[in-house]
Amino acid sequence: MQTRFLGQQQQPVPAIGLGCMGMSEFYGASDDAESLRTLARALELGINFFDSADTYGFGHNESLLGRFLKEGGPARRQQVVIASKFGIVREQGKYERRIDNSPAYIRQACEASLQRLGVEQIDLYYCHRRNPDVPIEDMVGAMAQLVAAGKVGQIGLSEVSARTLRQASAVHPIAAVQSEYSLWTRDPERDMLATCAELGTTFVAYSPLGRAFLTGTVKPEELADNDFRKSNPRFQGEAEHANRLLVEQLAAFASARGLSNAQVALAWLLSKHSHVIPIPGTRRIAYLEQNAAAANLTLSSSEIAGLDLLFDPLQVAGQRYPDAGMVGLES
């Protein structure tokens, strides 16, 4: 597995990480035993950068990772780089959320995450969503105090603007910005990627496979009732039809090269940017292995340009979240 580096500390991590959210919530039923097997296989493949958050399954996701770490003993903890997040507060059974960036909440949330993970330090701790009512100096200052106390290794931000990143970096180094980035979500290309490169901040791309839509394997009508993609605008009606036509062209591109859609989508990200780390999520070993193989692929400049053109943002239909999910996203 290729190695890339996380933040100003240049912490080595694999070129492809693992998003763990779907092991707990949002994508239909999950199975802890299957998830634990997938986590173990990830380590065998050299994927040791695991991404979680306190809101995923209302703490279940962190507890699952904590169980995985405990079962492997101290040696496993030394192998794994854990990222988690604070800031999204939800009620059980509801998708709607509020955003809390207050220093008191940050301290409380970190302690709770440490307990669930069963670790003394979270390697990378993100503000999951930004609340502009809290001064950036107060929020980042509280995160910096966690670093000084040894509870957090490095800090990051999620779904913020380039302006917010610059303001935050003036208070404390920001190791990573995590935002949605894929063939069908190109927003970070406007200014965030360049700003991250300038500041020495790693860009972590979540949903690099478009919540699996880009793989060509998802049929919205077959999704479980508790799968949040049922309410995602890009998976519905005319938008879904228009987006599926793009994916069919991606499938032709991939097939001509003996690759899967997922491998092309990940190779596109890795070939375009040396400071980007995609974190595709899966709970199945077969998909994990397929994704991991993408780290060894390189696309040519002409292939990248062709994919850029195919997935021109003007051709992608629908906003990327339902309205409730857009809360806290900066542009």
Rank of each mutant, 00 (worst) to 15 (best):
L297C: 08
A267L: 04
V152E: 07
R116I: 15
S161M: 04
A168V: 04
V327W: 09
C127R: 12
R116F: 01
A168C: 09
F213D: 06
A142I: 11
A324Y: 15
T38Y: 00
P208F: 05
S260M: 02
A112V: 08
L209V: 04
F213Y: 01
L214R: 13
V119H: 07
E198P: 15
R186I: 06
Y206P: 00
Q9M: 14
V13A: 09
A295K: 04
A239V: 06
L114V: 13
V316T: 08
R257K: 11
M139D: 03
Q2A: 08
G200S: 05
T282K: 02
G46H: 13
R67S: 14
K230E: 06
N61F: 02
I122S: 11
D225E: 15
T195V: 02
D187W: 12
S84W: 11
V276H: 01
I277T: 04
F50R: 03
M21T: 00
N296H: 11
V134T: 10
T201V: 13
N101P: 01
L117E: 04
Q121H: 10
L39W: 06
H172S: 08
G28E: 12
L270T: 11
A168G: 02
A33W: 00
A293I: 03
G72R: 07
S331F: 06
R76F: 01
D225W: 04
E44Q: 13
L314E: 10
R163P: 07
E303S: 03
L45T: 00
G93D: 14
S35Y: 00
A29P: 09
L309E: 15
A292P: 13
A40I: 11
R116P: 02
T164R: 03
D225S: 12
S63Q: 12
S30T: 07
P12A: 03
N48E: 08
R129E: 00
